[in-house]
Simulated assay, not measured.
Amino acid sequence: MNLRAGMESFFNTGIYGITAEKVSNGRDNIEVVREMLEGGIKFIQYREKEKDALSRYEECLILRDMVKQAGGVFIIDDFIDLAIAVNADGVHIGQADLPVHVVRKMLGSDKLIGLSTHSAEELERANELKKYIDYIGVGPIHATPTKKDAVPVGIDYLSYAAKNAQMPFVAIGGIKEHNIDEVISAGAKTVAVVSDVVGAENIKRKVEKLREKMFSGIH
């Protein structure tokens, strides 16, 4: 399918930004997202499941405007109602969330939908549903502190996705500066680096180092 407006930001830096306030070195999401945007990240996912609905709403109103002013794309993880309420650019959903065709009907045709996948079977199903989906998540590649119960899928599934995904994908899960090379070598063009970015003392410099690895020509 044709990529909806805004997907160019998916590839803007190669780094897919995700909030994770608990591992953000004492900083709030507003400060962290501002630094991610200053570092050049243009695709931001808001993922905060433990806050109350009002706090998420008020925070997302601010973040949506910040990302919009920076020319980026603002995605909300899981909470479709919140995405609609703050007029986000789309949502990222999991395998146990509402079916993608229902989400597409709720959001309309001009919003983005990302879907997490964890196996070849889930990827092939996503391929069958590609008229509803803009991109998929592939992972978790390694164990991750932001999703402690998630079972790592390893590099093999990432390599499979690189060969078989019929839409853009983002590699995610336990990816850091020290192991990003293997993820890139396996075929990832866009990578979610969460704790290593939001917890960095200098987020802008961390993003620069990651980009140097991503665009060094090793893939």
Rank of each mutant, 00 (worst) to 15 (best):
M1P: 15
L3A: 10
R4H: 14
A5Q: 09
G6T: 14
E8F: 06
F11P: 02
T13M: 07
Y16H: 11
I18H: 09
T19A: 14
T19G: 15
E21K: 09
R27D: 00
V32Q: 05
V33M: 08
V33Y: 15
R34Y: 14
E35Q: 11
E35A: 15
L37F: 12
G39L: 11
I41Q: 14
I41R: 01
K42Y: 13
K42N: 05
I44Q: 12
Q45N: 02
R47Q: 06
R47E: 09
E48Q: 11
E48L: 04
E48G: 10
E50S: 06
A53L: 02
R56F: 04
C60N: 07
C60S: 07
L61G: 09
D65R: 14
D65C: 04
M66Y: 07
M66I: 10
Q69S: 13
F74A: 02
I80Q: 05
L82F: 05
A83C: 15
A83V: 07
V86A: 03
V86C: 08
A88C: 06
V91T: 12
I93G: 03
G94Y: 05
A96P: 00
V100H: 06
V100S: 04
V102P: 12
V103C: 15
R104M: 12
R104Q: 11
R104W: 08
K105V: 13
S109R: 05
S109V: 15
D110E: 09
L115K: 15
T117R: 11
S119E: 02
A120K: 08
E121I: 13
L123G: 05
E124G: 14
R125Q: 09
A126Q: 02
E128G: 09
Y132A: 06
I133W: 04
I133A: 02
I136R: 07
I136G: 12
G137W: 11
P140A: 14
P140G: 10
I141Q: 00
A143Y: 07
T146P: 04
K147G: 03
K148Q: 14
K148G: 03
D149I: 07
A150W: 12
V151P: 04
V153I: 06
V153F: 08
Y157T: 08
L158C: 00
L158W: 03
L158M: 00
A162S: 01
A162V: 00
N164W: 06
N164K: 03
F169V: 02
F169E: 01
V170P: 08
A171H: 01
I175S: 12
H178N: 13
N179A: 04
D181M: 02
E182F: 00
V183R: 01
G187L: 00
K189A: 13
T190C: 11
V191H: 02
V191K: 00
V193C: 06
S195L: 03
D196N: 10
D196Y: 14
V197S: 03
V198G: 06
V198F: 01
G199S: 13
G199N: 11
E201I: 06
I203C: 01
K206T: 13
E208W: 12
E208S: 12
L210K: 10
E212F: 09
E212Y: 09
K213N: 05
M214L: 11
M214G: 15
S216H: 02
I218D: 05
H219S: 14
